[in-house]
Amino acid sequence: MEHTAVAEHHEGGKKEVIRVTIILTVLTIIELALGFAMMGMENQRLRLAIKGAIVILMLSKAFYIVGYFMHLKHEVKNLIMTIVVPLFIFFWFIFSFLYDGNSFKNLKNTYDPYKKELSTTKAEKKEEAKEIKTDEKKKAVD
């Protein structure tokens, strides 16, 4: 009884796999397209918006992988709950870590002017250093 139902379900399973593969491919292509569109973009707000869109696409990809490939969508509802509910911890985990990271940066920029200066002007020096490094490498190769 149970068996036939399971088997039937898996006959339809192949179609589902193909469907999900196509969805994942399309989502990845959109992500890549957004990534290309972001290149060289100066408008910081728009960049941020695109990054947000990419994160949403990432989460929907995760949903399809977990839901269909890992078959979670077809499990008992309570099992789904035990997997999904603890993941809500991540909201606070991510928010507070990033918030404090950002605050740490602001503190450093406010109270450590030397650091601030270092991180805004030292570029050319590093460029030279890089060239020297590559020169050295070339020498080493020679």
Binding site: F93, I94, F97, N102, K105, N109, K116, S119
Partner: peptide, 12 residues
Amino acid sequence: IAYGTTRFATNG
């Protein structure tokens, strides 16, 4: 998240 935190805490 550690990566994100470090990135948020760094200029550039």
